Amino acid sequence: MTEEDYFTMLAALNRKISTFRESIASLEGSPPPKTAPEELLANWTADSLLQRRAILKRYLHSITVQPPLPQAEFNRSEFVKARLTPHWKTAAEIAA
């Protein structure tokens, strides 16, 4: 990479950073619009697995899985759901 290429790339990166900063400044202080639960559910079912993972990564710290139940009750879905405890991020953590 030549010195001229470096400074050309640096100028382009500085322009992108300025654009991003302006976008962030314009969005700060204004809460995101509320979305109806029905619309959220429709979007969730329409999204791909990668999009769902990205949403969960943004809002979820972890999930605690309790030890398994006795063998006769292990694979019943209601018992599996009872063993899972989600740990959600706070609003401050999401905004950061």
Score class of each variant (00 low, 15 high):
P31W: 04
E3P: 02
K81Q: 05
T85M: 10
A54T: 13
A92Q: 15
F74T: 11
L60K: 07
T45I: 14
L41T: 04
S30A: 08
D5S: 07
S26W: 00
A82N: 04
E93K: 08
E4F: 09
T90E: 10
E78T: 07
R21Q: 14
S23R: 10
I55S: 07
E22M: 02
L49Y: 09
R83D: 06
L13F: 06
F20P: 00
K16Y: 01
P31E: 11
Y59A: 08
K81N: 08
Q71S: 10
L40M: 13
S30E: 10
T2D: 15
E78I: 08
L41D: 03
E4C: 01
E3L: 09
E4M: 06
T35F: 05
P67C: 00
S26Y: 00
T64A: 09
A96G: 15
G29D: 00
Y59V: 12
S30D: 05
T90A: 08
V65Q: 07
R83P: 04
Y59I: 12
A11W: 02
A72L: 08
K57T: 13
P37I: 01
T2K: 12
I17G: 01
K34F: 06
N14K: 11
M9C: 02
H61N: 15
H87L: 08
I55C: 08
S77T: 10
H87W: 02
L40W: 07
R83W: 04
R21A: 06
H61A: 03
S30N: 11
K81T: 04
T8H: 05
E22G: 04
H87G: 00
E3G: 03
P33M: 04
Q71W: 03
L10M: 13
N14E: 10
E28Q: 13
W44G: 04
